[in-house]
Structure formats: structure tokens, C-alpha cells
């Protein structure tokens, strides 16, 4: 009996069940979608960043409230052990480093452009994005993130070239908004499937 009982697999299954709801997919897809449509808000002038901030924080609220009102009432509540808590801290550090590095790269563009043929900034940002997403996928045991890592980092790398061909805002829509929308749709598909699989229990448990 113990040979078939793999405690590591039991813990992993318990952990990954929390990603069946698709909420993370929706949030990440929304972030990318927002990047793609950001150029459409150029008409708002100095208020343009606010629209992006609203979408990003709105998405975050959807994620948090979704976990609270959709996932937990259907799946139940669990507090994981030390290993997962340590991974959460590592993940927070990873995201913090990524945000700071990306901010620096975006605000210091010229120094990374050695020649017009080699988009160094694009390469660095896409590698950074790939590293962040694969790091998240590993720490969260969230396999779909590996696919999103490839999609988003390739999109970031191609951004410079697509901008030159189609110009803004069309390039943003092609490179970021469409993949972002696809990821969001994947998220909604998982959310609907999750809601049907795990009906909300009636009565107190």
C-alpha cells in the first residue's frame, strides 16, 4: 500500500488543484492584452498610464476576489507546509527583481541599442520575461506557465520587428493583445470547467 502512496504526488496534486480555476491565466492574459491595447489610449495623453494601471489592478482584484468567492468555496481551504511558503517568498523576490530590472530597461532604452540590427533591449527583455515565467512555473508547479513563457518572450522579441512593419497600434494588437486574449480565453475555459466540476456545496461543512 505504501508503495502506491506517493506523498509527494499527493501534496503536488493538492497544490496544483488550486490552478485548475484558470484565474491566473485570465490575469496574465489580461496583462498582456493591456500591453497590446495600450497604444489605443494615446488620445488620453498624460492620463494614458492610468488606463493601464486600472486594467492591471482591476485584473489583480479579479484574481484575488475570484480565489475568495469562486475557488475556495468550491475547493475548500488549505494551508500548505513550509516548503510552499518558502517557494512563495522566492517567487516574490523573483518578481520584485524582474519588475525593477524591467523598469530600468524601459527607462534607459538608448544605452541598450548598440546597433539598429541588434535589438539588445528586446533580447534582454524577452530573456528576462522567459526567466521570470519559467521561474514562476517551477516555483508554483504551474505547467501552463512554461507555454506562456515561450509565447510571451517570443512576442516581446518580435515586437521591435513587427512595430517596423505594421506600426503602432496595429503591431501592439498583433504581438500582445491577440496572444493575451487567447490566454484569457484559455483561462475562462478552465474557469467554466472548474465551476462545473466543483459545484458549490450546499449547507455548512
Amino acid at each position: 500500500m505504501t508503495e502506491k502512496m506517493n506523498l509527494k504526488e499527493i501534496e503536488k496534486k493538492a497544490w496544483t488543484s488550486y490552478f485548475q480555476d484558470g484565474l491566473w491565466d485570465i490575469y496574465l492574459g489580461l496583462l498582456f492584452f493591456n500591453m497590446g491595447i495600450n497604444d489605443l489610449f494615446e488620445q488620453f495623453g498624460e492620463f494614458r498610464p492610468i488606463s493601464g494601471i486600472i486594467i492591471v489592478f482591476g485584473g489583480m482584484m479579479f484574481l484575488i476576489l475570484g480565489k475568495k468567492y469562486i475557488t475556495v468555496p468550491r475547493l475548500g481551504l488549505v494551508k500548505f507546509g513550509q516548503k510552499r511558503q518558502i517557494n512563495a517568498i522566492k517567487l516574490s523576490i523573483l518578481i520584485l527583481i524582474a519588475v525593477v530590472t524591467t523598469a530600468i530597461l524601459f527607462f534607459v532604452p538608448q544605452q541598450f541599442q548598440l546597433s539598429t540590427d541588434i535589438p539588445i533591449r528586446g533580447i534582454i527583455i524577452s530573456l528576462l520575461l522567459f526567466t521570470i515565467f519559467t521561474g514562476m512555473a517551477y516555483l508554483l508547479d504551474f505547467k501552463r506557465l512554461y507555454v506562456y513563457a515561450i509565447v510571451f518572450s517570443v512576442a516581446m522579441f518580435l515586437a521591435e520587428y513587427i512595430h517596423e512593419i505594421f506600426g503602432r497600434p496595429t503591431s501592439g494588437i498583433i504581438i500582445f493583445a491577440i496572444p493575451g486574449l487567447i490566454v484569457m480565453l484559455i483561462g475562462f475555459f478552465h474557469l467554466i470547467k472548474f465551476s462545473k466540476t466543483y459545484q458549490k456545496p450546499t449547507g455548512a461543512i
Partner: peptide, 9 residues
Amino acid sequence: VVDSADFLF
């Protein structure tokens, strides 16, 4: 394998 869990979980 966890710290604690509720009945539903």
C-alpha cells in the same frame, strides 16, 4: 503533507 485543511478540501 499540508499544515491544515478544511473539511471541503
